[in-house]
């Protein structure tokens, strides 16, 4: 808890910089408007105007907060203008992708730990797969899944987010499943434990802390994947689509509020996983 003070002061500093930047970035428009009317605004008038423009180059923090409040609390959840509605669309695809990616990552990790051929053939490609910019593939995946006949718009998004999130899970699980040392494995062998038993009673439990660490990275990556999946594809629902539509209609408030909603969503997901991690590890007697 020692870091609350410093974190708060850095946050306040960031907001202050943001306000400064608002004045600097929006004042051009203000002066322009004033000149057309033949006025020379005083500095305080300029500052006041830059904070409250309708289509600012950079909206002020309070404007973004106001927009967030309006589109979450004051709108009905089912309304198409509600960020809760769009957040839910994004969240659903994210969770689908997260489940898919985690399952794939764990399955590959088990195969890699038990099979040397798998390790040598798959592991290098798993690394290479992450150096390929997925966004290049994103439009492809969407075209492919629609021509195969998948109508559900969530599926391509989920595939993209699974692609981004399987890798941290794979790496973490390989490390975790290998973390029992030779002595512990030997002990189980002296008990006459079969391969399955030593997997379930030793390897799997010791890998849990590693799993949670990578799940937290994985879910953040899955959210990034979903939003990337929504950006270039002409999606009409979801936080990424809000960013896209905001860009097309020249509505910066829409972009900024969707961005912050995405940030809040990411924070919430990671926090929830952190809580689950704490409870599980405590139950298993592994909490530090």
């Amino acid at each position: 808890m020692k870091s609350i003070g410093p974190v708060l002061s850095v946050l306040i500093a960031l907001v202050a910089i943001w306000y400064g930047a608002t004045v600097w970035m929006n004042s051009g428009w203000t002066y322009d408007q004033a000149e057309r009317k033949g006025l020379t605004p005083s500095f305080s008038e300029v500052v006041q105007d830059t904070m409250n423009q309708k289509r600012p180059r950079l909206p002020a923090p309070h404007q973004v907060a106001e927009e967030l409040w309006k589109t979450t609390v004051e709108k009905k959840v089912t309304s198409k203008r509600s960020l809760v509605f769009h957040g839910w669309i994004t969240l659903r695809a994210t969770l689908m992708g997260f489940a898919l990616g985690t399952a794939l990552g764990i399955a590959l990790a088990v195969a890699i730990v038990y099979s040397r051929v798998m390790e040598m053939s798959v592991m290098p490609w798993a690394v290479i797969s992450q150096t390929i910019p997925i966004v290049a593939l994103a439009p492809m995946i969407i075209v492919l899944s629609s021509s195969i006949g998948i109508e559900d718009r969530n599926v391509p998004k989920a595939i993209i987010s699974a692609y981004l999130c399987f890798f941290p899970v794979l790496v973490g699980m390989v490390k975790g499943l290998r973390s029992p040392d030779a002595m512990q494995l030997d002990l189980l062998r002296t008990y006459g434990a079969s391969g399955i038993t030593s997997f379930l009673k030793l390897r799997l439990p010791t890998s849990v802390p590693y799993l949670f660490t990578s799940l937290k990275i994985g879910i953040a990556a899955a959210l990034v994947g979903t939003i990337v999946g929504e950006l270039p594809t002409g999606a009409i629902r979801g936080l990424g689509a809000r960013i896209l539509i905001g860009d097309q209609f020249g509505n910066p408030m829409m972009i900024w509020s969707a961005l912050f909603a995405a940030a809040i969503l990411a924070g919430a997901l990671v926090t929830i996983l952190g809580i689950v991690q704490n409870i599980t590890l405590k139950r298993m007697g592994m909490a530090q």
Partner: peptide, 19 residues
């Protein structure tokens, strides 16, 4: 500053900044 920036930086690094 380190104590203040590290958690924030970690958080921001996980955000969908492509947006």
């Amino acid at each position: 500053l380190q104590r203040g920036l590290l958690p924030i930086g970690n958080f921001v690094a996980a955000l969908p900044i492509v947006g």
